[in-house]
């Protein structure tokens, strides 16, 4: 269980958000860059579900896209099963590409509306040349069956299905190249809760059956808690905390994690009074200096405004907060 399947080191992505050249010259502005992901490192072990949580602008989708090759990293390295992923080298990547897949957020956009379901699911099979002729049809039927649809559905078009059924089709497509690793980018955020439960259960069943490894991208802490073994919390493109899933919810180390947990509405009606959350996410083009979270942090200290905290090992992972360093002292929280 401890073998690392995917390893990310110092992953950084900058986007050029400058105005067009002529505007820049006339308005005397410099080029502007948005750092969506900055120096992110983590490992995902075989068979686990690693979740990345964060709000908008946290860079979680950018990381997912870099891992599957939809975006090129500005810096950093991604290793899959020990091999460096170099998406520029077509031949070498082909064998690797078969081993990972992606499930997208919007099942209404992730299936080509002009294709029959059978062709959609068979596309990876054809692209990797895995099967031929009647075998493809049989395999598509088997996959449809696996995700809870019927083989006859292969003849239909995507618009004949509900959102939940479409997400099942997308999962069947992801499974068709028999991958080991699946990146799930907000797989249920476009679905209703009762359908979300079906999809989450299906994902867990498939994980058990095929020993899949998941990278789950989500903004929903309840979903993340239900699905994952380890969790990375992102804020403005940086990892603020990595922790075992169970520990994160019991004993969050970073103040931002605590804030996120507090913001989840309390369905149990325990009468728990939430700590009022203040402020909003700053503009990622000009993030605050030092610790990016300092303007919203209830425990902010002088050092936080000047110096960016490094990741420090904790009991269940790591966290990047000055409170955990010898310079800062961790305040004892009395409220859970």
């Amino acid at each position: 269980m401890s073998d690392v399947l995917l390893s990310v080191q110092g992953l950084t992505r900058r986007f050029d958000v400058s105005k067009p050249w002529l505007n820049r010259v006339i308005e005397r502005e410099d080029r502007q860059y948005l750092t969506a992901t900055a120096d992110v490192s983590f490992d995902i072990r075989k068979g686990e579900t690693f979740a990345l949580v964060g709000e908008s602008g946290s860079g979680k989708s950018t990381i997912a896209k870099m891992i599957v090759g939809l975006l090129e990293p500005s810096a950093g390295e991604i290793r899959f099963d020990g091999k460096v992923m170099d998406f520029a080298s077509g031949a070498a990547m082909r064998a690797l590409r078969r081993r990972f897949q992606m499930i997208f957020q919007d099942p209404f956009a992730s299936l080509n509306p002009r294709w029959r379901v059978g062709d959609i699911i068979a596309e990876p099979i054809h692209t990797f040349g895995l099967l031929k002729g009647a075998e493809v049809t049989r395999e598509v039927g088997r996959l449809l069956d696996l995700v809870g649809l019927s083989a006859a559905d292969a003849e239909k078009f995507p618009h004949e299905f509900s959102g939940g059924q479409r997400q099942r089709i997308a999962i069947a497509r992801a499974l068709s190249s028999r991958p080991e690793f699946i990146v799930c980018d907000e797989p249920t955020s476009a679905l209703d809760v009762s359908v979300q439960a079906q999809i989450l259960n299906l994902m867990r069943d498939l994980q058990d059956e095929f020993g899949l490894t998941y990278l789950l991208i989500s903004h929903d802490l309840s979903v993340v808690r239900h699905m994952s073994t380890r969790i990375g919390v992102l804020y403005l493109g940086r990892l603020v905390e990595i922790s075992d899933a169970k520990r994160l919810f019991i004993d969050p180390q970073h103040p931002y994690t605590r804030l996120l947990l507090d913001a989840v509405p309390d369905l149990a009606l325990s009468g728990r009074r939430r700590t009022p959350v203040t402020g909003e996410i700053p503009n990622p083009i000009a993030p605050p200096p030092g610790c990016a979270f300092h303007p919203r942090c209830p425990h902010v200290m002088d050092i936080c405004r000047k110096q960016r905290p490094d990741a420090i090992p904790t009991a269940s992972g790591q966290a990047a907060c000055h409170l955990l360093t010898p310079e800062g002292q961790k305040p004892r929280e009395t409220t859970a």
Binding site: K65, V68, G69, L70, G90, M93, R94, R97, R98, F100, Q101, M102, F104, S110, E123, P124, T127, F128, A170, R173, S177
Partner: peptide
């Protein structure tokens, strides 16, 4: 994007 992920 799904087609790009598999390297089409």
């Amino acid at each position: 994007q799904a087609a790009r992920v598999i390297g089409a």
